[in-house]
């Protein structure tokens, strides 16, 4: 087994997450797919650290996790406030900016 298999796995997971963002309508599931993409990128960062022989990749993955935590908090609060005003978590219903 070669180390770069992790990178291929990461690419596949990222693609699945991206397709999920495009296909799903429920805002929370879309958000989960974004988390999946972030996780896939973290996996490739850790693998890059191993290939390059320094710890920078691991530290950047750590920062990605911190930023993802902050992003989840804000995103879920936005989803909740949209749900409160529209009684729906579907991304199709939030279309006021469309026109």
């Amino acid at each position: 087994m070669r180390v770069d298999y992790y990178l291929y796995l990461s690419a596949v997971l990222f693609t699945i997450g991206a397709v999920g963002v495009l296909v799903r309508r429920n805002a929370i599931v879309v958000f989960m797919c974004i988390e999946l993409m972030l996780n896939a990128v973290n996996l490739s960062l850790v693998t890059f650290a191993r290939m390059d022989g320094n710890l920078d990749g691991q530290i950047i993955a750590f920062f990605v996790m911190v930023v993802a935590a902050a992003e989840v908090v804000i995103g879920l609060a936005i989803i909740m406030s949209i749900f409160r005003s529209r009684r729906s978590a579907s991304v199709d219903n939030a279309n006021l900016l469309k026109y």
Partner: peptide, 11 residues
């Protein structure tokens, strides 16, 4: 992992 990710999109 890949199966669970696909299942997540399809669930």
């Amino acid at each position: 992992a890949v199966g669970a990710a696909i299942g997540m999109v399809l669930a």
